[in-house]
């Protein structure tokens, strides 16, 4: 890799600033005790007042059981994980058919699959709520997981369809001719070759699931708290205080953790070599 020109460096800094910039006030806010306008930095920091304050302050509150942050994190990760697993199980075979076979009504089906991305979440949420209340699924994990599958499946299907398209039939046929059973073909050839797409799709649907507010809010009925619903309840007053800032920072953690894990996983695979033909 060559060295970057000054212009490229400035450009890179600007992009990084654009993405990371919004987090800076959040971080400062979460550590602030008093941050009055027009001060550039808080007048009093959290740590200075920690011993004297009669009520728990930002991080003390966020990390205490009262904030329900652990419960929310656990719920978020659990729901995200299960949704991703179910989504993969549904989409892997479906994407194979979409990528390789031609059948009547295929384009209609493809359009239908992207509908959840077009129809407003509110509409889906309210429709589901009416059904789920009757079915007794409102306020249950099952209900929320089903609801989360609706916006995650379109992403996963798209991602996996393109991976299947890139995987010619000849690899599987070659393995069969060499004597591999169906299961061996899947385990030794198909899945390893699909892995980059599977990881990317899983990462995406996990992130989508952990970010869903409205569906969780409507169908959880306040009984199931996830990080986005917790955050919204904190900021619904229209003003971000230090505890809100702290929770907002925690909300980003599962996504970042997931990204790091998958990044590492992808690098360890031999796919850095690329697919030569």
């Amino acid at each position: 890799m060559g060295r970057l020109s000054p212009f490229q460096k400035i450009y890179l800094f600007l992009i990084a600033g654009f993405i990371l910039g919004p987090f800076l006030p959040l971080i400062i806010q979460s550590f602030a005790f008093r941050w009055a306008w027009p001060d550039l930095l808080p007048g009093t920091w959290w740590l200075e007042q920690r011993e004297k304050s009669p009520i728990p302050l930002a991080w003390d509150y966020v990390l205490s059981p009262y904030s329900r942050i652990w419960e929310a994190t656990l719920n978020t990760v659990l729901i995200g994980g299960i949704v991703t697993a179910i989504c993969l199980a549904i989409c892997l075979p479906a994407a194979k058919v979409l990528a390789r076979d031609r059948f009547r009504g295929k384009s209609l089906l493809e359009f239908g699959l992207s509908l959840p991305l077009i129809v407003p979440e509110t509409a889906i949420g309210i429709a589901l709520l009416m059904m789920f209340i009757r079915l007794g699924l409102a306020g249950t994990y099952t209900g929320i997981i089903i609801a989360h599958l609706i916006p995650t499946i379109p992403y996963m299907i798209r991602m996996l369809t393109s991976v299947w398209q890139g995987l010619g039939r000849e690899f599987e046929e070659q393995a069969m001719i060499l004597g591999a059973s169906r299961w061996q073909v899947l385990r030794l050839v198909t899945l390893p070759m699909l892995m980059p797409g599977v990881v990317a799709g899983a990462l995406f649907s996990f992130l989508v699931s952990t970010n869903i507010f409205l569906l969780t809010f409507l169908l959880g009925q306040g009984k199931i708290v996830t990080l986005p619903t917790l955050l919204f309840s904190k900021i619904s007053g229209g003003q971000i205080d230090a505890t809100g800032a702290g929770i907002a920072l925690i909300v980003t953690v599962p996504g970042i953790a997931m990204l790091l894990i998958s990044e590492r996983f992808l690098r360890e695979e031999a796919f850095g070599q690329g697919f030569g033909n």
């Binding site: 010619g168 000849e170 690899f171 046929e173 070659q174 393995a175 069969m176 001719i177 004597g179 591999a180 059973s181 050839v189 390893p192 070759m193 892995m195 695979e269 031999a270 796919f271 070599q273 690329g274 697919f275 030569g276 033909n277």
Partner: peptide
Amino acid sequence: SVQERNVGMVFQRYALFPH
């Protein structure tokens, strides 16, 4: 079946397993 037929095939683009 293909598996039992004991034939060999070299595909046009070789179909080497890239991983």
